[in-house]
Write a protein that binds this DNA or RNA. Structure first.
Lengths: 209, 209
DNA sequence: GTCTATAAGAAGATAGAC
DNA sequence: GTCTATCTTCTTATAGAC
């Protein structure tokens, strides 16, 4: 369990601190202290504070791609697996939403990374582009693709898929934001997620004639 | 037009910088430079950098309360003006949503303040509570109240008002976030807001028998 | 790979001239 | 109310002993 290298522990503690205070507000000494070493020792593992940040970014990209594949959130995979998605029923939709919600909220790396990007997006075009891509555009375009398939399969009433994706995902995004600094809200938020998706299913599900 | 006091200009420039970089990443010298004075001169107007931040907070509270009243977003007012809200039709709903969206996005003070709070919420219980109250809880509970009245008035199908509020407001919140660092998205976002609200009205509006 | 010591600079803030 | 000069502390980062 304690097999993390010092390099990995530096990245972990740095991310924790960056996610709470922002990059510039965290000192190298703070990071080192959290790891249990002195600041100069840290420079044996990373050439600069900026380099720690850059490596966290790379690490996250890699983890995100893995998770996207495992959640079947990758657009490429979805088009290959039409059979899977065109058979989605309400309960599976609830599971999909809860999985996405739980991942963004509780995966220790993903959750902190999202908070860090939320903070850092405002002073870098690159970071704001990454934030938008990862937490807005990709979830929306993926959901849009899924709902398009569900309409084709006769599971949902015909409707603009992007509007459906916005209706489905935006409440998850808002509830996520509401839990970020208030863990005591998580239970209620999970209930809201479920209610929301069941309402979504009721409103858009194919009506019997 | 140029009647702003130095004190007011300091707050203005400080907010602009805080909204982009966060409080700790901005130096007093940077703020002073943006105003056109030297750092020590700034201390004749504010006793510390923290004090500038605190005054921005107070200023915003005051402006927010004014705007809430003018947008009729104040819960107290709404219950007094049942007549107004129980007569809301689809077009008025669109206007209400667009007004809210436009205010959060374009009011120079409100927009920067929201970005600053988005950054600062993570390292202070007080600020995260303020963020949640101002951008999540109050909009939602206000919308919830409005929709409850609309159901009573027979304008909407019976439904949990909080679920309706989440359905109505969450997409506005997400689209707002998507425009924050990407002004080129605003036009599309406004179109999406309108489409979203018309869909909302179509889905929840009282069906004719 | 860790440490102490230290450089070189930037930070918040004050003193005092004008 | 503005400035220059200055203080103190903290910052990132390096040098070199162990």
């Amino acid at each position: 369990m304690e097999k993390l290298s010092t390099r990995q522990r530096i990245m972990q503690e740095a991310l924790t601190l960056f996610a709470e205070n922002g990059f510039e507000a965290v000192s190298v000494a703070q990071i080192a202290s959290a790891v249990g070493i002195k600041a100069p020792s840290l420079y044996k593992h990373f050439e600069s504070k900026q380099h720690i940040f850059d490596e966290i970014l790379l690490e996250m990209q890699s983890r995100y791609e893995q998770k996207a594949a495992s959640l079947q959130m990758n657009g490429m995979e979805a088009t290959k697996d039409i059979a899977v998605f065109s058979g989605l029923d309400e309960q599976q939709l609830v599971e999909m939403g809860k999985n996405l919600f739980d991942y963004f909220l509780h995966d220790t790396f993903a959750s902190k990374f999202r908070r860090m990007l939320t903070i850092e997006q405002y002073h870098s075009r690159d970071l704001s582009a990454l934030y938008t891509k990862q937490y807005l555009d990709e979830p929306l375009s993926y959901q849009s693709l899924v709902f398009g398939l569900m309409i084709q399969a006769g599971l949902l009433e015909p409707e603009d898929p992007m509007l459906l994706a916005l209706h489905f995902y935006a409440p998850l995004f808002l509830l996520l934001t509401s839990c970020d600094c208030h863990p005591e809200r998580e239970e209620k938020a999970f209930q809201m997620v479920e209610q929301h998706i069941r309402q979504f299913s009721r409103l858009h599900g194919k009506k019997e004639l």
